[in-house]
Computed example of a mutant assay.
Amino acid sequence: LSMRPFRCLEGAEKTWCHVPYPYAIRRNIAEATTDLEYDLLFLWKDRTDYGIDMWNGLYYRIEPEGEGFRG
């Protein structure tokens, strides 16, 4: 995991990082929102923590709502 290209934002108490999905996806949201959900994977860690714990991940379930999405 240390070699992954995480992009992170440091906050006052926690650091939030985007987790790039490691496999090829079609990014087609016309059929299902799963590809979009995979692009929106995040994790957090305390500012004092060393390394990244993938158990602190966030996964957003997304569904169509009107002309947009809700998640």
Rank of each mutant, 00 (worst) to 15 (best):
S2V: 12
E65F: 12
W44E: 05
L36C: 03
C17Y: 03
C8L: 02
W55F: 13
K45C: 02
E13H: 14
K45G: 02
A12V: 13
W16A: 10
F69H: 09
R61G: 04
R26L: 13
A24K: 12
L43G: 06
G68W: 07
T48R: 15
K45L: 03
E67I: 08
L43I: 04
R61V: 05
K14G: 03
R4F: 10
W55D: 15
P64C: 05
I25S: 03
N28C: 08
Y60I: 15
I62C: 01
W44L: 01
P5C: 10
D53H: 06
I25A: 06
D53I: 03
Y50G: 15
L9H: 11
W16L: 13
E63P: 00
R26V: 08
C8T: 01
A12I: 12
G66E: 01
R27N: 12
Y60M: 14
K14T: 10
E13I: 13
G51F: 04
E31P: 00
G11D: 06
G71F: 02
D46H: 10
L58V: 13
I52R: 03
A24N: 14
F42I: 05
R61K: 12
P22H: 08
A32P: 00
C17D: 03
F6E: 08
A32M: 09
E13V: 14
F42P: 02
I29G: 00
E37M: 05
W16D: 07
I62V: 06
Y21V: 07
G11A: 06
N28L: 05
E13S: 14
T48E: 15
T48I: 11
E65Y: 12
A32Q: 11
D39H: 04
T48A: 14
E10R: 14
F6M: 10
K14V: 10
E63C: 05
P20V: 04
T15Q: 12
P20R: 06
N28Y: 05
F6R: 08
G71N: 05
L43H: 07
G51P: 04
W16K: 06
E10D: 15
D49L: 06
G71W: 00
I62G: 00
R7G: 04
L43W: 02
N28V: 07
G71P: 03
N28G: 07
Y60R: 11
L41W: 01
A24P: 09
K45Y: 01
T33H: 03
E31W: 05
I29F: 05
R47A: 03
R27F: 10
T48W: 10
Y50F: 14
T33R: 01
G51C: 01
G11W: 00
A24L: 15
L9F: 12
P5H: 13
